[in-house]
Each structure stands twice: as C-alpha cells, then as structure tokens.
C-alpha cells in the first residue's frame, strides 16, 4: 500500500504511523461524558470508504487519508492543517 503525502508524494506504507478514524479531529465542545466516550472510543468502523489519520514520519505531517477498507485502494490525502476540524456538539 502506498499513501500520497501532500508534501512528499506517494510513499510506502511503512513510513506512516496509524492512529485510527478521523473522529479524533472532532473534539467535543462540551465536557459531557457521553460526547467524550463517543469521541475517544466509539467508531463507525465502515466496510468501504473511510477517512483516517496517518502520520508521515519523515516529514512529521499528520494527514487525513481517504481510502477503502475493503479493497485497500487509496483515493487521496490532505494535511490535517488543511482540513476543517469540525467541532461535534
């Protein structure tokens, strides 16, 4: 699997660290425990298209990768700093 880093281009999967679905970009606005449970633990876990967080170790960039969990096809990637980080209420 190759992942397109916005800075470095197509790179081997071994250069990346994986941290899970992009839910972590949507930090709860409140201190409501249910919202935090949802944010930290619960996942849609889709079989198909997903967006998840990868860290490109050589250049130190967190990116959001659009890919398919069934076929392993990678559609594209954006730096996290370029993605609107919605706040989930």
């Amino acid at each position: 699997m190759r992942i397109p880093c916005p800075h470095c281009g197509q790179r081997d999967r071994r250069e990346f660290y994986y941290s899970g679905a992009d839910d972590l970009l949507h930090r709860p606005a409140t201190d409501d425990p249910a919202a935090w449970d949802n944010y930290l633990h619960l996942r849609d876990n889709p079989a198909g298209d997903t967006r998840d967080l990868w860290y490109h170790e050589p250049c130190g960039t967190w990116i959001v990768v659009s890919r398919n969990t069934v076929t392993h096809a990678v559609d594209g990637a954006q730096a996290v700093t370029d993605v609107a980080q919605g706040v989930r209420t």
Binding site: A21, L42, R43, D44, N45, A47, T69
Partner: peptide
C-alpha cells in the same frame, strides 16, 4: 469482525475498529 455493521442495524455505534 462484522460487529460494527450488524450493531449499526440497531442504530448502535460500538467501541470497535476492525
């Protein structure tokens, strides 16, 4: 491994990633 999809049929979101 398919727990996420089946639970979603009952409107649930699980603490599970496959």
């Amino acid at each position: 491994g398919r727990s996420g999809q089946v639970a979603a049929m009952a409107g649930m979101r699980l603490p599970v990633e496959s």
